[in-house]
């Protein structure tokens, strides 16, 4: 793909991925076929900051996990009152990483 397009994608969406994945994403995008560009551009990526806010407000009901697509863990948190409150606190620190991980999974379908 066009280097300019790839760099634009990295600049606008870099914050949605772990920093150590950026290099790999750039490399893969450069060799990717041009026809996949519209799909990659319209991927529904989730913002880690938003999920942190949701985690702080609705974490004990598992809403943060539901939003990023971890439905099973979300149900677990909902049923156990946020894992006796402990899981809720752990997720305040884990949710941003989990969101970036989920975004990477979404992108990976197109990269390989």
């Amino acid at each position: 793909m066009d280097a300019q397009k790839v760099d634009m994608f990295i600049m606008t969406n870099g914050k949605f991925f772990e920093s150590h994945q950026i290099g790999q994403i750039r490399e893969r995008l450069l060799v990717l076929d041009e026809s996949k560009w519209p799909m990659i551009q319209s991927l529904p990526l989730k913002d880690p900051s938003t999920s942190l806010i949701v985690s702080i407000l609705g974490g004990s009901m598992g809403i943060d996990r539901f939003i990023i697509g971890d439905t099973g863990i979300g149900v677990g948190k909902l049923l156990t009152c946020g894992g006796f409150g402990i899981w809720t606190i752990i997720d305040w620190f884990m949710i941003q990483g989990a969101t970036r991980e989920k975004n990477m999974q979404k992108l990976q379908q197109f990269l390989y």
Binding site: S60, M61, L78, L79, T80, C81, G82, F84, G85, T88
Partner: peptide
Amino acid sequence: DVCMIKHVTGIPCPSCGS
């Protein structure tokens, strides 16, 4: 009483009472 929602807001959460 371990529920965080109940402690903070005074309202029981969906799974209170389980």
